[in-house]
Design a protein around this nucleic acid. Structure first.
Length: 897
RNA sequence: GGAGGAUUAGCUCAGCAGGUUAGAGCGCUUGCUUGACAUGCAAGAGGUCACUGGUUCGAGUCCAGCAUUCUCCACCA
């Protein structure tokens, strides 16, 4: 790797090279090491169809910071990467691509389709992981997994069979969310609600027994063909006389019972509800309670059923294959074959013609849509596989209550509990081809259901050889739910599994708590008897400059690869972690990324300065025997920062940690320390050499502290300075060291820095250019400190000459007062006596005001007796300083008069 | 209907085991070709920490309420 540093910071010129250096060195590799503690993160697997977007960048950056930090802190740190087959999303993409070629799934057949899908996976599956590398992610690529690889598939089958044998997986006709576009069922979590403009259509159903008309409001009139009852509330006096009566369903002229059910809300609408058990979740429940027929009038691709559908049903019935709750199928006659929207229009027209449509009212409501294609969900009764959730949810709730897994920030626990406490059974079968096939076979002869990891040779019940495998695949989240342990070799008790499991931290966005986090926790508890991770670290989403979600339709997405190209991965990473607190969203802005890049540039140039001073000398990366005050100050400050950064990182306060590193580098190291030692560096002998060593030593620690956040630039610079070891990645992360704590020296330095700042301030107010040097007289009780600091005052406070004494008797000079000294700057021709007096008086007032505050506290009996001693002492010392300063200012005012 | 977040400088956001004078970046003003960096240096202006109460010796920080706003969940015949 290059040992020189180019004049300007150009990240695109070295980031790829450094990534290759890390890979070649095998530094990302984690092997179980009994002498170390494990720290494990499993990467949330991105979809194989996906392209890297800014959300991934945030997620991966946070993980990489944690894993690099832990690795440098002596842990055996494993970050396990992988990708997700994303059944529904991938299948949709492939079908779409095929559609452009004029080919359908059915044309191709299952086997050929899957071949094509695997091809797709080979082509695109690597794309996203290549893109991830650009970010500098230090995951163990040798352990890369895929949710449909052999091991993960084995785990899926294992879990399915175990849950089935335990009675926690069952098959049945239930109400599910059906996506007519994807032509598959989806789980409750996959339904997204969108506000849509709709109508209430008020229909009139005639009561057979009394001849009166019941007014019934509906938002989906096309479902009326599937009505099998009308419900009223038993306490509703308006309809008490109708108990046991019937209505005549318009258009079909079918007689339907009037039932009493709590679902009918007297407060809502007319209090009468039409019941369509096949196409509404609530109505389905009502149907079950009253043993109503279930009549299906929609096909699974969103059209009205017809004669052919009825024939198919009859065929099934003839075979005796009708299951519990199997919906009857209606021949919708003139409406058959229409899509539901066409049918709605036609039915409304016909209802209107017979006077059964009373009125129409506009109505906005939230409608469930498919989270993938945003087609309106059609609730349908359908035969699917389900996971019984109650028995799995309870231990998952308990584990988090006991803090066996902790949420950061904690508030997301509530979301978690609320979801699990109200959970319904999980529909896991999908009418898709790309995915884990459900490990179930049906005997063609006796109908026996055979569940097993491998295909049986014959039916264990009747010995029949004709067996049909289940056509369906599993919800993609079924396999990702096992990710923390399936990737470590489970169900085998591998070395990896024993060492790295349970994992340590799961990093993810709040948007997939339901999809993923919840399911991992209950699956892990059930399968491994342990929680899958100690901590769930939740982050927000990245929004655009205006605070909007980034989306394709808005075209406001930021391509992380373009940002990396332009500013470097380090700048992007820095942007994503700075000023970010757990669980909160962040905004991307061009201005901010420029500032981040500017910081990298600053570090680059400071390092170049160090090089200018060490390259012709033999400089060791260790502290010299003799340390000056400024050395002790920077070391002491570094020491404090190191301690705090560790504390913050351990509390997942990454934004605060990086802010402290930033401030130390820019404000302490660059703006002060480098300036302070410039003079020494110009001198000859030990003094200069010592300065070089401290300069290098501190830079080395800076690079280590910053490395998890900005891995590339820190490695690039670290390689050019004297160091031990192969890579900064494996250098020890700085921690607090009592031997480097120099409180007295730090105080001395602060006194001088205060004085320098005060002089600069005064000069600036008076518009004196730095080139105009002036003599400074320093009256102080810290004479030694200021004697020692003379050279700093000269250089940084534009002093031509300095004199230090207990006091001076000077008239007509500009006066500057700090807590520790009074400084006179004789700038005779610039001194405006009036202005000086005014300024001093103003300052006096300010300090007196503050003293009054301090004294107020000290005179407050409650404060003195109840506040901690240290706080009281602090205020006392403060008050004393203020008194001294007041005395100094008063003296200065006197001198002017 | 339920839950949660946000509300701090012109803008974007940090801060909060409650404790000297509330911070940063950007923007703004003034002065600097300071031997690493003009992607810079120095100095400065700018804030009753949404509002009302409460707890406390002491409250951006804790509690209650209220307003505005965003998000999630549920429901909607």
């Amino acid at each position: 790797m290059a040992q020189e540093m180019e004049k300007s910071y150009n990240p695109s010129g070295f980031e790829d090279e450094i990534y290759k250096f890390w890979l070649d060195g095998g530094y990302f590799r984690a092997e179980p090491d009994p002498d170390k503690k494990p720290y494990t993160i499993v990467m949330p697997p991105p979809n194989i169809t996906g392209q890297l977007h800014i959300g991934h960048a945030l997620d991966e950056t946070l993980q990489d910071i944690l894993i690099r930090y832990k690795r440098m802190s002596g842990y055996c740190a494993l970050w396990l990467p992988g990708t997700d087959h994303a059944s529904i999303a991938t299948e949709a993409k492939i079908v779409e691509a095929m559609r452009k070629e004029g080919v359908t799934k059915e044309d191709l057949g299952r086997e050929k389709f899957l071949e094509r899908a695997w091809e797709w996976k080979r082509e695109y599956g690597g794309r996203i992981t290549k893109q991830l590398r650009k970010l500098g992610v230090s995951c163990d690529w040798e352990r890369e997994r895929f949710t449909m690889d052999e091991g993960c598939s084995e785990a899926v089958k294992e879990v399915f069979v175990k849950l089935y044998n335990k009675g926690l997986i069952y098959r049945g006709n239930r109400m599910v969310n059906w996506c007519p576009h994807c032509r598959t069922s989806i789980s409750d979590a996959e339904v997204e609600y969108e506000e849509q403009q709709g109508h209430f259509w008020h229909l009139l159903y005639k009561v057979k027994e009394t001849g009166e008309y019941l007014e019934i409001a509906t938002t989906r009139p096309e479902t009326m063909l599937g009505d099998t009852a009308v419900a009223i509330n038993k306490d509703d006096e308006r309809y008490a006389h109708l108990h046991g009566c019937h209505v005549i369903l318009p258009l079909l002229n079918k007689e339907l019972p009037i039932v009493c059910d709590e679902h009918a809300d007297m407060e809502k609408g007319t209090g009468v509800v039409k019941i369509t058990p096949a196409h509404d979740p609530n109505d389905f429940e009502v149907g079950l309670r009253h043993s109503l027929p279930i009549v299906r009038c929609f096909t699974y691709d969103g059209h009205m059923t017809g004669a052919a559908d009825v024939a198919a049903y009859n065929e099934l019935a003839a075979k005796g294959n009708l299951a519990e709750n199997e919906p009857e199928v209606l021949d919708c006659g003139k409406y058959a074959g229409m899509d539901t929207m066409q049918a709605r229009e036609a039915i409304l027209e016909d209802l209107k013609a017979i006077g059964a449509l009373k009125e129409v009212k506009a109505h906005t409501h939230d409608v469930g849509t498919c989270y993938r294609c945003h087609t309106n969900i059609e609730p349908m009764v359908s035969k699917q596989w389900f996971v019984k959730m109650k028995p799995l949810a309870e231990p998952a709730i308990e584990a988090v209550r006991q803090k066996r897994t902790q949420f950061i920030p904690e508030r997301f626990e509530k979301v978690y509990f609320h979801w699990l406490e109200n959970i319904k059974d999980w529909c896991i079968s999908r009418q898709l081809w790309w995915g884990h096939r459900i490990p179930v076979y049906y005997c063609d002869d006796c109908g026996e259901v055979i569940v097993g990891k491998t295909a049986p040779d014959a039916c264990p019940k009747c010995g029949g050889k004709r067996l049909t495998p289940d056509e369906d695949t599993l919800d993609t989240w079924f396999s990702s739910a096992l990710w923390p342990f399936s990737t470590l070799g489970w169900p085998e008790q591998t070395e990896d599994f024993k060492y790295f499991y349970p994992t340590s931290t799961l990093v993810t966005g709040y948007d997939i708590i339901f999809f993923w986090v919840v399911r991992m926790i209950f699956s892990a508890l059930e399968q491994t008897g342990d929680v899958p991770f100690d901590t769930v670290f939740i982050h927000g989403i990245v929004r655009d400059e205006l605070g909007r979600k980034m989306s394709k339709s808005l075209g406001n997405g930021v391509d992380p690869l373009e940002v990396i190209e332009k500013y470097g991965a380090d700048a992007l990473r820095f942007l994503l972690v700075t000023g970010n607190s757990p669980g909160n969203d962040i905004r991307y802005s061009e201005k901010r990324i420029e500032a981040c890049s500017g910081f990298a540039n600053k570090l680059w140039n400071a390092s170049r300065f160090v090089h200018m001073n060490i390259d012709d000398h033999d400089v060791k990366n260790e502290l010299p025997q003799t340390l000056t005050t400024e050395d002790k100050w920077i070391l002491s400050t570094l020491n404090t920062v190191s301690r705090e950064v560790n504390e913050n990182l351990n509390k997942f306060e990454l934004g605060i940690a990086v802010q402290k590193v930033y401030e130390f580098i820019w404000d302490c190291y660059c703006d002060w320390y480098i300036e302070l030692v410039k003079a020494r560096l110009q001198s000859e002998g030990d003094d200069a050499q010592n300065a070089r060593q401290v300069l290098v030593y501190v830079l080395d620690r800076i690079l280590r502290l910053l490395h998890p956040f900005m891995p590339y630039i820190t490695e690039r610079i670290w390689q050019t300075i004297p160091h031990e070891g192969e890579t900064v990645m494996l250098a020890e992360y700085p921690t607090y060291d009592e031997a480097l704590n120099f409180p007295e020296a730090a105080d001395e330095m602060r006194r001088i820095m205060d004085a320098i700042r005060a002089v600069r301030n005064r000069r600036s107010e008076m518009n004196v250019p730095p080139s105009r040097k002036a003599k400074i007289y320093i009256a102080t009780k810290f004479t030694k400190t200021f004697e020692d600091g003379k050279s700093f005052m000269q250089k940084l406070a534009s002093a031509s000459k300095i004199e230090v004494a207990d006091s001076f008797d000077i008239e007509g000079a500009v006066t500057v007062v700090t807590a520790d000294a009074k400084l006179y700057i004789p700038l005779d021709e610039l001194v405006d006596k009036e202005a000086e007096l005014k300024r001093l008086t103003k300052e006096l007032e300010q300090v007196e005001k503050r003293l009054a505050q301090s004294e107020g506290k000290l005179n407050n009996q409650g404060f003195v007796s109840k506040a901690p001693a240290a706080v009281v002492e602090g205020v006392k010392a403060q008050a004393q300083k203020e008194r001294e300063k007041i005395a100094l200012i008063k003296a200065a005012i006197e001198a002017f008069k």
